[in-house]
């Protein structure tokens, strides 16, 4: 049965987490890109966007294009984009279409959080 795309937003101190559900395809574009003004940066100066793809069961090229546009906005607006819960097959597809140039993939949320902490520590040391 078709599972329409839905999205829930969570906020942590350092990141905005999007829990994505359903099928990530062309119709998901409106939900994902239209629900927030990504070019303006993340809420309250957060520097990381985390995409939780654990509940996404289907991604096609249109869906990957949406992810690229989202991650590209992040690059412009100075936030990092992370993703976790991506199956091996879709990791392969992400590499094929060049999505991994915009998006860092981790196995789970904890790994992403550890990476973000390490990034912040490095930034503080630099400052």
């Amino acid at each position: 049965m078709e599972q329409p795309f839905t999205m829930q937003m969570r906020l942590t101190e350092e990141a905005m987490i999007l829990d994505l559900h359903g099928e990530l395809n062309k119709p998901a574009e409106t939900v994902l890109l239209g629900s927030y003004s990504w070019d303006d940066g993340l809420q309250d100066g957060r520097s990381c966007l985390i995409l939780n793809l654990q509940e996404v069961n289907y991604i096609n090229s249109a869906g990957m294009a949406v992810l690229i546009r989202l991650a590209r906005s992040g690059k412009k607006s100075q936030f990092h984009t992370f993703a976790y819960g991506v199956s091996v097959h879709y990791q392969k597809l992400f590499r094929m279409v060049g999505l991994t140039e915009y998006l860092m993939i981790y196995p789970d949320e904890q790994s992403v959080m550890e990476r973000i902490s390490a990034l912040h520590e490095a930034e503080q040391e630099e400052n």
Binding site: S61, I68, M96
Partner: peptide, 20 residues
């Protein structure tokens, strides 16, 4: 060629995926 950074809609890799 996956460099679609200059396109508004970075599509056009359907055949590339099929081929791969």
């Amino acid at each position: 060629d996956t460099d679609r950074s200059d396109r508004e809609d970075p599509r056009g890799w359907g055949l590339m995926l099929i081929d791969g």
